[in-house]
Design a protein around this nucleic acid. Structure first.
Length: 256
DNA sequence: ATGGCTTAGTTCCTAAGA
């Protein structure tokens, strides 16, 4: 089965691309981020017509995550992370599909840093790590899929120099991500491409796509039981080059 | 040192993204 994470950068603007992707690739599970849509404007009918059941956690204007499942309805397990009751950002949605636990994650960007947005990002990573530990304790097949807004290593970006002051690759951001992995999660793209040089995002600005100036921030983390089933992982890069594309490309893992 | 693009909402500008 193939599980995809795809930051669509606006589900309304991206609906034609998304439906195209579902029809052409027929992924089994798709975790979406940056819906930029409130709950009542999520295009449920179009997605159902494409053959997918859906759960979504929307928010007007920005954020918003969803889980799609081909031929079945994902069963909700949790929306949002505990630990900060006043936090109203829609950034976490966890579901069960065919015995697999999947979470769609949209980790805060954190720019500019230093500042309150960066502090929020670091606190959010800590809260995610708490939830991730509880999931590992269940000893099940789990996939944490999403836009982590963390460039894990220097070889995960086209330019360390261009990005050095960005929240995406600050030592604190990387330490939070590393601590998550250290719980026992497998970074599936890193396993498949240990030398780096694989991008999942290309900025709209400064001809980044044309120059292949990207970085890797969309990740699929596997619990040990899921990692035992890992067959392959990759990026559907061609979708970044289509008309009216998202600035992220669909990123996927195939499990037995 | 800055802006570049794109999307959405409070639209003919501003905020947010990364």
């Amino acid at each position: 089965m193939r599980i995809v994470t795809y930051n669509v950068n606006g589900i309304k603007a991206r609906l034609p691309r998304l439906l195209e992707y579902l029809a052409e690739e027929q992924p089994d599970i798709v975790c979406l981020q940056e819906l930029k849509s409130s709950d009542d404007t999520f295009p449920e009918a179009d997605i159902r017509a494409a053959g997918y059941g859906a759960l979504w956690h929307g928010q007007k204007g920005f954020n918003g995550v969803a889980v799609l499942a081909r031929g079945t309805d994902p069963v909700e397990r949790q929306r949002g992370l505990s630990g900060e009751p006043e936090d109203e950002h829609s950034r976490y949605l966890e579901a069960e599909v065919d015995g697999l636990v999947v979470a769609s994650i949209y980790l805060p960007n954190g720019n500019p840093q230093p500042g309150p947005k960066f502090d929020y990002k670091l606190r959010w990573i800590d809260r995610l790590r708490e939830r991730a530990a509880a999931l590992l304790a269940e000893e099940r097949a789990v996939v944490l899929a999403g836009d982590y807004n963390v460039i894990p290593n220097d070889d995960d970006t086209f330019s360390v120099r261009a990005m050095h002051s960005d929240a995406l690759m600050q030592p604190e951001s990387r330490a939070g991500y590393r601590a998550l992995l250290a719980q026992g999660w497998t970074d599936s793209l890193r396993t498949r491409f240990p030398k780096g040089g694989i991008w999942t995002f290309w900025d709209y600005q400064a001809g980044s796509w044309q120059r292949d100036a990207g970085f890797r921030i969309d990740h699929l983390l596997l619990s040990p039981i899921a990692a035992d089933r890992l067959v392959n992982a990759g990026v559907d890069k061609a979708y970044r080059g289509r008309e009216k594309a998202s600035d992220h490309a669909p990123t996927w893992v195939r499990l037995r």
